[in-house]
Design a binder for these strands. Structure first.
Lengths: 124, 124, 124, 124
DNA sequence: GTGGTCTAGACCACG
DNA sequence: GTGGTCTAGACCACG
C-alpha cells in the first residue's frame, strides 16, 4: 500500500479515501485481515490516533469490522464492496468529465486521450 | 461561475482551483476584467478576506494581474493560460486513470465508459 | 447542564447520551447556540478533544450543525428532535421494564412504584 | 440465562451486572450451584478469564462463595439477596424517572405508559 | 499484542 | 474567538 498525502486536506480523510480504493480494488481482500493500526500508522508515517480515526470511519461505513483482540478485518460482504467500487468509479468519472469539459475537451477527445495516455506520463 | 465547496478542504484552496478552471477553460477570458473581490465573495458566499487570499495566490502564480486603480485582470499571455489548461488536464487524467485502474478498469473499459456516460448520470 | 460520568463507559459516549437528553428534553432549544467546545469541556471537566469527539458524533447523527467560525447550533428540525425524544423514551422504558421484570416486579407493581416514588428518594 | 453485550462497556462489568440480575431475580437460586466457569464462558461466548474476573468480583461483593473442591455457590443469605434486589430496583427506577422527566414526561404519564406498554413494543 | 480511550498541547482556517 | 486536526504519550480491556 502506497500513501501520498496532500497538505490541504485532513490526513484521516485521505486515508479513508485510499483505504476505500484498496478495498474496492481488491488490494485488501474481502474478509481479509487488516494490518494492526500501529503498523499501518508507521507505514503511512502518521500518528496511530490519526490512522485509528480513519479506520473507525470505515467501520462506521461498514467496510471494516474490528474484533477487539484479534484485529481488524475487511467486510466479507461482497455486495458492499462492489457497491463501493461502483460508487467510487462513478464519482471519479463525474469529477473527471466535469473538469475536462470545463477545460474544453469533448467526450470523443477525452476517450481518445484516455486510450492513448502513456503509462510513462503518469509521473507528472 | 458556479461555486461548490466541500467542508474538508480550505475554502481559499478550493477557490484557487475553481478559478484556474474558469481561466483555463475560457470562462474568464484572457486579458478580461475580473469582478471586484466583494462581488466574487458575495457570489461565492464567502468572506471577502477569503476571496482576497485566493486571488492573491493566483497573482503569485501569474494567472491574474492587478492594477491598483482599475482592478484585476486575467493574464493576457495565451501561452500561460494554455500551459495551465494542459497541466490541469494532465493532472485530472492521471488522477482519474490511477483511481480507475485501482478499481479494476482497463483503458478500453474506461474509454468506452467515458464516451457513453450520460449527462443524466451526473446527478447520482 | 450537569455532568456525571461513570468510569466503565467511554466518557465521549456518556456525553453523547447526555447531550441527546438535553436536546430532546429542550434544555438545549432547537436552533439554539451550543456553548463553545472549550467551554463545554471545561464545564464537564474533560479534555476538549473528548468533547469535540462527542459533538462530532451528534453532528453525524443530525442533532447538531457547526458553522466553522460562528459556533455550533442545535438542529432546528423539530421532527428530528421529536424522533429522538420518542426513541430515547422507548429505549429507557424497554430497559427499565426488562430489568424490573427480571427482579420480579409486575406491571401493576411498577406503575404503583413509579407514581409513588418520592423525589427525595432520587438521591440514593 | 441470556447474554447480550454492548461493545462500549467492559464485558466483565456487563457480566457482573447480568449476574446480579439473575441472582436478585431468583434465576440463580440462593444457595444454588453456579455452573463451572468454562460452561458459563462458553454460554456467554467470552474468554474464561473474563468470566472468572466477573465471578471473582461477585465473590468480593458477597453474592457468591466458592468451595475449592465443590465449585461456586450463590449466597444462601436471603437478606443479602433481597438487599441487592431492592438496591437494583431503586437504581433502575431513579435512572428511569430521571431520564423520563428530562424528556418531559410527568409521573402520571409514565405510570400510564408503563402499564400499557405492550410486549410487542419491546422489539423496535 | 491488539483495539480503544483520553489527555496535554500545538497549530491551522476563517472571520 | 471558534471549530477542526494532529501528535506524543499514557493507560485500559481482553486474550
Amino acid at each position: 500500500m502506497r500513501w501520498n498525502f496532500v497538505s490541504d486536506r485532513p490526513i484521516y480523510a485521505q486515508i479513508v479515501e485510499s483505504m476505500k480504493l484498496f478495498i474496492a480494488g481488491g488490494e485488501l481482500a474481502p474478509g481479509g485481515k487488516v494490518p494492526p493500526v500501529r503498523d499501518l500508522a508507521a507505514e503511512a508515517g502518521v500518528n496511530p490516533n490519526t490512522m485509528q480515526r480513519a479506520l473507525a470511519e470505515l467501520e462506521r461505513e461498514g467496510l471494516l469490522r474490528s474484533n477487539r483482540t484479534s484485529g481488524r478485518y475487511v467486510t466479507d460482504d461482497a455486495a458492499v464492496v462492489e457497491a463501493v467500487r461502483l460508487s467510487l468509479a462513478k464519482a471519479e468519472t463525474v469529477r473527471f468529465l466535469g473538469a475536462m469539459e470545463k477545460l474544453g475537451y469533448g467526450r470523443a477527445d477525452i476517450a481518445r486521450l484516455v486510450e492513448n495516455f502513456k503509462a510513462g506520463d503518469d509521473k507528472a
